[in-house]
Write a protein that binds this DNA or RNA. Structure first.
Length: 205
DNA sequence: AAAACGGGGGC
DNA sequence: GCCCCAGTTTT
């Protein structure tokens, strides 16, 4: 199952996997904006906010009403505006204006939970991490990699144990694309799924 | 463990 | 209209 999954992800999405860390502050801001919101709706807000406030200092001094306007379009906007501003302030006061490089420090920032912390580590700082979102959670359970009752922490630990660290990036990006295009939440497209034949949940909706 | 936050797009 | 979205925080 593991080998089959890695092969599938590599063949289907290998060409679409970017490499190397990007700007950690931008990853952090974009990731908070993207919570419970489709990526298409996030991009405009993310661009306008980051061009108005490209640094923690700029973001922390942005008036809340203006911040809210800049990110209009994303869900949970009031919450996100407050958390983004508070997080920027903490980056400035406690981390010298830098994004901290440990999971523990990241998760002390408002709006940063386990998933966002792992996204920053992985995509922002190029450190090994597997962010567990709804896609990764759902697919891991459908494929039988993780028991259905598992919480997010158990899913994360199991995946990290199951796959060699050099494959984590493929797992991260591949599972999300797979979940968005084939293994859909409600009506998975089992008919055209490359895992058909080995998936224990095939045809079970 | 469950509820609350939330606008936008697909069906 | 109803459901879901690369979750986090509070109850």
């Amino acid at each position: 199952m593991r080998g089959r999954l890695l092969r599938t992800l590599e063949e289907s999405y290998g060409g679409r996997i970017g490499r190397g860390p990007s700007h950690p502050f931008r990853v952090l801001v974009s990731c908070i904006l993207s919570q419970r919101t489709r990526e298409e709706n996030t991009e405009r807000a993310s661009r306008s906010l980051l061009s108005a406030a490209p640094t923690p200092r700029a973001l922390s001094s942005l008036p809340l009403p203006r911040l809210k306007k800049l990110i209009r379009g994303v869900g949970l906007a009031d919450q996100k505006a407050r958390r983004l501003k508070e997080t920027a302030k903490l980056l400035l006061e406690k981390h010298g204006g830098r994004v901290p490089g440990t999971r523990e420090a990241l998760m002390e920032l408002p709006g940063v939970g386990p998933k966002t912390a792992d996204v920053v580590l992985c995509y922002g700082l190029g450190k090994p991490a597997i962010p567990v979102d709804t896609h990764v959670n759902r697919i891991s359970k459908r494929l039988g990699l993780v028991r259905k009752e598992a919480g997010l922490e158990e899913v994360r630990e199991t995946l990290q144990r199951l796959f060699p660290v050099e494959k984590w990036h493929l797992i991260n990006r591949g599972l999300v694309l797979f979940g968005r295009e084939v293994c859909l939440p409600r009506y998975p497209r089992c008919g055209r799924c490359p895992m058909a034949g080995v998936c224990p949940s095939e045809g079970k909706g």
